[in-house]
């Protein structure tokens, strides 16, 4: 299965599995919902200094794969995951890996902004609090401020930290969710179509933010918007019908795809 997915190396193409030590690496990951195979053996590496985009038509398995990376699929009773996924060489599905610590190290931002119905401060402080990242109140305040600054939201909310997070605009809510994810100091941030519920201006702000966060965190982003993938990512993987069809440098995927299916998708034949 892996062999078929690793394309014959050419000078422009890059294999899904690289020589360099990756931050996260997935090998032959399959997901079953009951008897249905939703993901058919995906192998991919995610590196910590770049943004990796997963594109493909809806129902292609890209979100399912993303949710494997921090074991959010555990919450779906009928879902079963096989294959190995490693974070810094540690198997994330092994018994030794505490799922709670895994999710602290691999943060997630969801499709629809989902702030807690609590104050802005409490939204960001929740993660550090449950993980015991702050010894006292002033440390906690420092973490909240730093996270909100990194998420580019500080100037807009610094005077109203006690107002409810749900009272913010959609774009602000999504940046609050990013701040909340940053606050626990993750190594990887997964973003599941983070802009699909936002207007173009808010989307631009989030994309800008992704640029700024790159390098500090490994970022994997699922998007159905090909322009967005082209704008924000350095690597792109194309998924179709539960398979990963092609993986490589974003510029190559969009200008010079190797697979016919990729070509069809980026030129708008389907999806």
């Amino acid at each position: 299965m892996i062999d078929t997915l690793i394309p014959t190396p050419t000078d422009t193409a890059e294999p899904a599995v690289e020589e360099r030590t990756p931050k996260m690496s997935a090998r032959d990951v399959k997901v079953f919902y009951g008897a249905k195979e939703a993901l058919k053996g995906v192998s991919i590496d995610i590196h910590d200094d770049r943004v990796t985009a997963f594109i493909g038509p809806s129902g292609c398995g890209k979100s399912t794969f993303l949710r494997c990376l921090n074991r959010m699929n555990d919450t779906i009773p009928s879902a079963r995951v096989t294959g190995t996924i490693e974070l810094d060489g540690e198997d994330i599905n092994s018994a030794a890996m505490d799922v709670v610590q895994l999710r602290a190290r691999v943060g997630m931002v969801f499709q629809k902004p989902n702030p807690f119905p609590k104050s802005i401060f409490e939204n960001v402080a929740y993660g550090p609090r449950i993980h015991g990242l702050a010894e006292n109140k002033s440390e906690l305040e420092a973490i909240v401020e730093k996270s909100l600054k990194r998420a580019g939201l500080w100037d807009e909310v610094k005077d109203r930290l006690n107002e409810s997070g749900t009272a913010l605009s959609g774009g602000q809510q999504q940046r609050l969710c990013i701040a909340r994810a940053i606050a626990v100091d993750p190594e990887v941030i997964l973003m599941d179509e983070p802009c699909s519920a936002l207007d173009p201006i808010a989307t631009a702000k989030i994309e800008e933010l992704i640029h700024e966060l790159r390098g500090r965190y490994a970022i994997a982003i699922v998007t159905h918007n090909m322009q967005q993938a082209a704008r924000v990512s350095q690597r792109t993987a194309f998924f179709h019908l539960g398979e990963m069809v092609e993986y490589g440098k974003t510029s190559d995927i969009f200008t010079n795809p190797r697979e016919q299916r990729t070509q069809d998708y980026i030129t708008g034949r389907y999806g």
Binding site: T75, A104, A181
Partner: peptide
């Protein structure tokens, strides 16, 4: 209580029990 709240808390590394007692039950 919408599932997105549960996802949000799980996403920052809350355990299932913490999700239930910190978020679901109060709401």
């Amino acid at each position: 209580v919408p599932p997105s709240i549960r996802d949000a808390a799980l996403g920052v590394g809350a355990s299932k029990m913490q999700v239930v007692f910190h978020h679901v039950l109060p709401l």
